[in-house]
């Protein structure tokens, strides 16, 4: 017997004037942010288009950044490969350090911290997130770097046989490692904040079920809370990663910008797209400015992709928990 599915019903909803007005306001609000985003991208593309056209793929693969001579005797050459690699390396170090600490801190705040400590600690954490990055940069340069230099020497001493921990010359200051540690400290509050929010929503009945079956507190964390918050944590980490990739001043102060692709994280050479822009913007000529705009567009797209991945993961997490 053939089964014929009925046609889809069309339901017309007649909305009241207040509903229509509210819908208009929220639609306009969301459209404004999209329009601003599109305008930024269009502006960067417009200003950087000439450089993309002149250098093509070389702009992404070349390690040379030379504005050339004003009289035209030396042709300009622009490539962001070391800065792209540097951005990814520094952000990866930051995330690798920040996420485990964020998980531990969030679990402590949600489940272990005494009630009287919970609120002040949360407030302090939120406050730390609001400290301007230039302050972090100065602190990183003056206080963190002398200490982190010693940590880098220790890592190099014990793990120097691993290629990424080798250094061509024994100078351990202003390295991607130090920039990564500083960025980890900077993004720790935001990742912790997201993790705390997600963990605090872990279903209490599931936690009770774990206890009711002889589970320890750690067993309940491992079986209920961590899996429940896994995707939310990834979303938080991606937000942190977005900030780490785009961080300018702090990285500029503690990282030695060198136009050479470098994966050796303890060596005093590295870079990031954001700090390249910060360092060159003031003295750039018109054509170099275009190159910096093009670099800005690359960073903009990378950040957008990271945020897009983050929201997809968070959305998927929401669906899987339903």
């Amino acid at each position: 017997m053939e089964i014929i599915a009925p046609d889809k019903r069309k339901i017309a909803v007649r909305r009241g004037i207040v509903d229509k007005a509210f819908r208009g306001v929220v639609t306009a609000g969301s459209m404004i942010s999209l329009i601003v985003l599109a305008l930024i991208a269009a502006f960067l593309l417009y200003r950087g288009f000439e450089v993309f056209r002149d250098f093509g793929l070389k702009f992404f693969t070349s390690s040379k950044w030379d504005a050339g001579a004003d009289d035209g005797s030396i042709a300009p050459s622009f490539g962001v490969a070391p800065m792209l690699v540097g951005s990814v390396v520094v952000a990866t170090i930051a995330i690798s350090i920040a996420v485990p600490f964020a998980v531990v801190m969030a679990l402590f705040l949600c489940f272990y911290a005494p009630r009287f400590l919970r609120r002040p600690m949360t407030s302090v954490l939120d406050l730390v997130a609001a400290v301007p990055s230039v302050i972090y940069g100065i602190w990183g340069y003056a206080i963190l770097m002398p200490h982190a230099k010693g940590w880098a020497e220790t890592i190099n001493h014990w793990l120097g046989w691993i290629w990424i921990f080798k250094v061509p010359v024994p100078i351990f200051e202003r390295s991607p490692f130090i920039a990564g540690v500083l960025l980890a400290i900077m993004i720790l509050p935001i990742v912790t904040s997201v993790a705390r929010e997600v963990y605090s929503q872990a279903p209490q009945d599931q936690i009770d079920a774990a206890y009711g079956l002889g589970g320890t507190r750690w067993g309940a964390m491992r079986t209920v809370v961590l899996p429940f918050g896994k995707s939310g944590l990834v979303g938080g980490a991606m937000l942190g990663l977005g900030r780490a990739l785009g961080e300018t001043v702090a990285v500029y102060l503690v990282l030695n910008l060198v136009f050479k692709v470098n994966f050796q994280i303890l060596a005093s050479a590295g870079g990031s797209v954001a700090s390249l822009i910060a360092s060159r913007f003031g003295e750039a000529g018109p054509y170099e400015l275009k190159a910096l705009m093009a670099a800005g567009l690359v960073l903009f797209i990378i950040t957008l992709i990271v945020n897009f991945i983050a929201s997809s993961i968070v959305n998927r997490a929401g669906k899987s928990q339903r």
């Binding site: 009945d205 009770d208 079920a209 009711g212 002889g214 320890t216 507190r217």
Partner: peptide
């Protein structure tokens, strides 16, 4: 709870 040795069917 974990020291009580109960088994619960909720």
């Amino acid at each position: 709870p974990e020291q009580r040795g109960c088994g619960v069917v909720f």
